[in-house]
């Protein structure tokens, strides 16, 4: 279930018309992070996500909804795009999900009395919060709570180091390197083998 970083394909190679034909789109973005582990995981600073059921406008809006439900201010859009990827896949395999998502996005505009997506992020968040408990909200929350945190870019962002077996575990890699508290007695915590 682990997800690799969003595939970065060359968006220019795909013509706008092709998406329109299938009714689906490509979501594009640029990594905020220019250095560090997260940037190292992505082959290039721009990313693109090919959608299969939803349009790019819908994808973009869903990304913003996801940000409003899980507002990590410095977490890159590329990670939120992984949630959109899963929502799009769910919409592709189940027409009811597609309907639910589309209706929810329309509802947002109604609540915003206009284009919800064009509001500033706090205003957007305030509207989304009021939708808590709806099927639309729950679908996105439930998908996000897995997808947002189960990928290597998120791990890099939050500092989680993940799989360790291939690296010999944490035995020689800091499992007891905390130094802002005194070390326990040797009886309580014997020396390592």
């Amino acid at each position: 279930m682990k997800q690799t970083p969003v595939e970065v394909n060359a968006p220019v190679a795909l013509t706008r018309r092709r998406f329109l034909k299938t009714g689906s789109g490509v979501l594009m973005g640029t990594l905020m992070a220019t250095g560090g582990t997260l940037a190292a995981l992505a082959p290039s600073r721009t990313w693109a996500l090919t959608m299969s059921a939803l349009t790019d406008a819908e994808g973009d809006k869903l990304l913003k909804v996801t940000r409003a439900i899980f507002p990590h201010d410095t977490l890159d859009d590329a990670v939120y795009a992984l949630v959109v990827k899963d929502l799009d896949a769910a919409a592709a395999s189940d027409a009811n999900v597609a309907k639910l998502l589309r209706a929810g996005l329309q509802d947002l505009d109604q609540r915003a009395s206009g284009d919800w997506a064009s509001l500033d992020y706090l205003a957007r968040e305030n509207i989304v919060i009021k939708m808590a408990g709806t099927d639309f909200f729950e679908k996105i929350r439930g998908t996000s709570v897995v997808s947002l945190y189960n990928n290597e870019m998120a791990w890099a962002h939050f500092g989680y180091e993940g799989a360790s077996y291939d690296k010999g575990g944490y035995f020689d890699r800091g499992f007891q390197d905390l130094n802002w508290l005194p070390d326990p007695d040797a009886n309580a915590s014997p020396a390592k083998a």
């Binding site: 499992f175 905390l178 309580a188």
Partner: peptide
């Protein structure tokens, strides 16, 4: 006993 990790240091 096993050697304690960072999580254990905090509890201890």
């Amino acid at each position: 006993g096993l050697p304690g990790n960072n999580n254990f240091k905090v509890m201890y």
